[in-house]
Design a binder for these strands. Structure first.
Length: 861
DNA sequence: AGTCGAACTGTTCCTGACGGG
DNA sequence: TCCCCGTCAGGAACAGTTCGA
């Protein structure tokens, strides 16, 4: 245990309102780096070297920054504390072992309580009602991300902040500034990696001084199977909300997870729902201020003021404002975040009226930088410039905000990438103004889209920050693994206000970007293939365009079963004479079974050497005599190449349509599984090609976050309204389904999902549907689908611009004649309609075909 | 099934180029 | 013009992890 930095003697105006210590250390320059005493050997360990015991930084109390070394009750340390703390100000600090035995290691903190006495009463000028409460127990679960500051009716952490030198801009005001001096030996002050917010402003990072900085698996050594199957990881928790058991993060040791802090900041933490600590970090020339946007709706703006001139970096300073400023939200996007679709929601790229388009794609490789590194610059275009994004069809005069975040690029749903964050690049070479904000733990850049620039933006301010796998994998509910998860996409989103307070949201994602250092130079990457299907006989030549091909490159075709078992593999013949480093000429091998009667989706990859293989690419073998079977949906990458987006949903990509181990999807299979009562109705399906002609519907959200309210009968969850940020609204509106103008009087048809467990929250009574019924396809209209809506199906495109979301009819496409097996059933209703009833917990996956705006629920049979 | 070495991978550090003040 | 500083970027060291013999 060490007590360092008795700062108040030099900063009499210092406020007790310091941010949680996180992993930062405040040194008293007179005392030097703090030492840690081992109770066994009494050997002093410089903190930077890290003692053999867990180190935990806890919230500074008054002005004292405390490093808590747990695992031992150290009388000497206590004496030291007693002798050094100013009696009038400093509380007594005790560390007491809990009942449980403690381990000797980084995990030991969990078993100790930090007690502070006497209970101090602190006030903030002008806010005497702000009260400090003694932490009942500073267990790691609480202390790693939050403080013990409470207020009955006022949350200091949720308050807007003012920085002293930016007072002219009310948006940058911050009443509580804390200089977190990290002593990072090599990083520039402005990018100090060990600030409590980190460079990304998202959360404290683990101090990883060398030696011993090599990150280890947070749960100890993991097997690769554990990586593949997080459920095997001891103590791993699913995405479902964890109870406040006080042990969630105990094994973190010195690590502070990103999520926990974010949760705390957003007030979502289960441990301390009332704690909303605003983090303020002052580095030598930057002040990061996190403050809640829109009255604590869970989103935080980050103000980064680079112009603040302050004392030298090592000189902490603290400022108490005389008055608290008004809340401020400075964002290009004036729409309340609560009204906007969550980042993981699928959103189309275009409507009848608008289209968000990436004119210049980013380079397929961009080495992301760690917090411990300097920036590696903005993502660039292959030509040397930068990506360019343009909004077409906008006639307004007001500039809009283009949001940028880092999304996943794997075969699942496009969502914010857990291991990468967008990084705001500033500097002389950056011409684009950008703003940062945090939306549910994801950093989002906003840059202006201005009519004077033809609504075009050059993305020269977006870099990519890599978060450490160990940090992220510790996040509560995080199931993704970081290893080999190094591909991302830039996701661009724009919200276009509409008359009546509604707005249209569009989103487009870039091509995948490989972010690892080595992969960029070693792994082969297929960027394009000139064909994606041929007959089962093969023999056709396919040209692959990409990078890092070699004369030894092989192309392997393979097929896997639903459970992931590989059942076929065949090496294709590569024409080495023609092939180049960026191009391969491949002869497609014949499929293993020439007698198949339906298209078969397989994968292929390019491999250089033993393990240097590309991402799997997709290929379809078509039967020789193809019956009239609806072709498989194409994957999103292919879709994007073809000029339309395929929003994904519920964690299922089009690929999962074929490869999900649980969701068996076969053209001959029925669609089974977990839906609440829905009615299966028949209707004509649009021609497959129609998707290429149709405009994707926009998701139109109304202001005020009421878009999911629906009718009173909408929810079956005991009256609880779902968190709009944790649910997915599925809707349609395509011309194919002929939704047509949707009026408020029409019945909505909304399926509410929880993305964490894929529950279908509600479905309603079946409604009849008229119209032609093809033999092999059926449509399910879920919930209170309006027959009028169906009857008014029109060949004209829908009027999507002014549509309330609760009025979207949802169409579920289903193969005909398949009775859901096991958990589901299909029966006939009184009016001759058949009904599908499936247990909701078995809804494994679903798939939204945006082009046709059908929802496909994939059932496990 | 266990062992061991090689290969792979994530993270951090070193270094230099470049440009502006 | 030189120096300093910050940014950017390439390379590689280091150590943990995974794979395959």
């Amino acid at each position: 245990l060490s007590l360092t930095g008795v700062e108040h003697s030099r900063h009499p105006a210092m406020s007790p309102c310091q941010t949680p210590g996180g992993s930062n250390r405040l040194y008293d320059s007179n005392l030097g780096p703090p030492k840690v005493l081992s109770p066994e050997s009494e050997q002093a360990y410089p903190l930077e070297e890290t003692s053999p015991y867990g180190i935990k930084s806890c919230s500074p109390v008054y002005s004292e920054h405390i490093e808590v070394l747990t695992g031992y009750e150290n009388q000497e340390a206590r004496n030291y504390l007693d002798s050094t703390r100013p009696a009038a100000l400093s509380p007594r600090i005790e560390i007491t072992p809990s009942r449980e035995h403690y381990s000797h290691g980084r995990d030991s903190l969990q078993n100790h309580h930090l007690n502070i006495s006497p209970r101090p009463t602190l006030t903030v000028p002008g806010h005497e009602n702000l009260a400090y409460r003694e932490p009942q127990c500073l267990s790691p679960a609480s202390s790693n991300s939050s403080t013990s500051w409470h207020s009955e009716n006022y949350s200091p952490w949720a308050s807007p902040c003012v920085s002293p030198s930016s007072a002219q801009n009310p948006g940058d005001l911050c009443p509580r500034l804390q200089n977190i001096h990290t002593g990072s030996p090599r990083t520039s002050p402005g990018t100090s990696p060990h600030t409590s917010l980190g460079d990304d402003g998202l959360g404290p990072r683990s101090p990883s001084p060398r030696p011993g900085s090599r990150s280890t698996s947070p749960q100890g050594k993991r097997t690769y199977d554990m990586y593949r199957n997080p459920g095997l990881i001891p103590g791993h928790r699913s995405r479902s909300p964890s109870p406040n058991n006080g042990h969630e993060d105990h094994n973190i040791g010195a690590h502070y997870t990103h999520t926990s802090l974010t949760d705390a900041m957003n007030g979502f933490g289960t441990n301390h729902p009332n704690l909303v600590p605003t983090k303020i970090v002052k580095t030598s020339n930057q002040v990061y201020t996190l403050y809640p946007e829109n009255h604590g709706d869970g989103n935080y703006m980050v103000s980064c003021d680079q112009d603040i001139k302050t004392k030298p970096a090592a000189e902490p300073f603290f400022v108490i404002p005389s008055v608290w400023p008004k809340p401020l939200v400075s964002s290009l996007c004036s729409i309340p975040v609560a009204s906007l679709p969550p980042l993981e929601w699928p959103i189309p790229r275009r409507t009848d009226q608008y289209e968000l388009h990436i004119d210049v794609q980013p380079k397929p490789h961009h080495r992301a930088h760690y917090e411990t590194e300097g920036s590696r610059g903005a993502v660039k275009a292959p030509t040397g410039g930068h990506p360019v994004v343009q909004l077409h069809g906008y006639r307004g005069k007001e500039p809009l905000g283009l949001q940028i975040f880092i999304g996943t690029a794997d075969e699942r749903i496009l969502k914010p990438h857990a291991f990468y964050q967008v990084h705001r690049i500033t500097g002389k070479t950056v011409t684009t103004t950008s703003f940062e904000k945090i939306i549910n733990g994801t950093k989002v850049l906003e840059i202006p889209l201005e009519p004077k620039n033809n609504m075009k933006a050059i993305i020269d301010c977006a870099g990519i920050l890599k978060l450490r796998n160990a940090d992220i994998e510790l996040r509560k509910g995080e199931t993704d693994v970081g290893r080999k998860n190094t591909r991302v996409r830039l996701v661009f989103r724009v919200h276009i206000p509409q008359p009546g307070g509604q707005h249209v949201s569009l989103q487009v994602a870039s091509h995948p970007i490989e972010c690892s250092q080595r992969s960029a130079h070693e792994l082969p990457m297929v960027e394009k293939q000139d064909m994606d299907s041929c007959s089962v006989l093969g023999g056709q030549q396919m040209i692959l365009t990409g990078q890092n091909f070699s004369s030894d490159s092989k192309v392997i075709f393979m097929e896997k079963t639903q459970d992931g078992q590989q059942i076929w593999e065949m090496e294709a013949t590569v024409d080495k004479d023609k092939s180049q480093p960026s191009m391969l000429f491949v002869e497609v091998p014949p499929y293993r079974d020439a007698s198949v009667c339906h298209p078969v989706k397989v994968n292929f990859y390019v491999i250089n050497g033993k393990r240097k293989r590309s991402q799997p690419q997709h290929f379809t073998y078509t039967p020789l005599a193809s019956p009239s079977i609806k072709t498989e949906p194409i994957d999103e990458y292919e879709a994007e190449r073809m000029g339309f987006a395929m929003p994904q949903i519920l964690g299922l990509s089009p690929h999962s349509y074929y490869h999900s181990p649980r969701g068996i999807l076969h053209p001959d299979n029925g669609l089974v599984s977990g839906m609440a009562p829905c009615q299966r109705l028949s209707s004509s399906l649009p021609n497959q090609d129609a998707r290429f002609q149709q405009q994707s519907p926009a998701i139109v959200y109304s202001r005020g976050g009421k878009s999911l309210s629906g009718s009173p009968a909408m929810w079956q969850t005991g009256g609880m309204m779902p968190d709009p940020h944790r649910s997915v609204l599925v809707h349609t509106g395509s011309p194919a389904q002929s939704v047509g103008p949707i009026n408020a009087g029409q019945h909505p048809s909304i399926i509410q999902f929880s993305p964490t467990n894929h529950h279908l929250i509600r479905a309603g009574e079946p409604q009849p549907l008229t119209g032609p019924q093809p033999d092999n396809q059926q449509i399910i209209y879920c919930d209170s689908y309006s027959p009028q809506a169906a009857a008014t199906h029109s060949p004209t495109p829908p009027q999507v611009a002014v549509t309330h979301p609760q009025h979207y009819p949802t169409v579920i496409q289903q193969q005909k004649g398949r009775t859901p097996a096991g958990t589901g059933q299909m029966d006939a209703s009184a009016d001759g309609q058949r009904r599908v009833t499936v247990k909701e917990e078995n809804l494994d996956q679903a798939y939204l075909d945006d082009g046709e705006c059908k929802l496909m629920l994939l059932y496990s049979v």
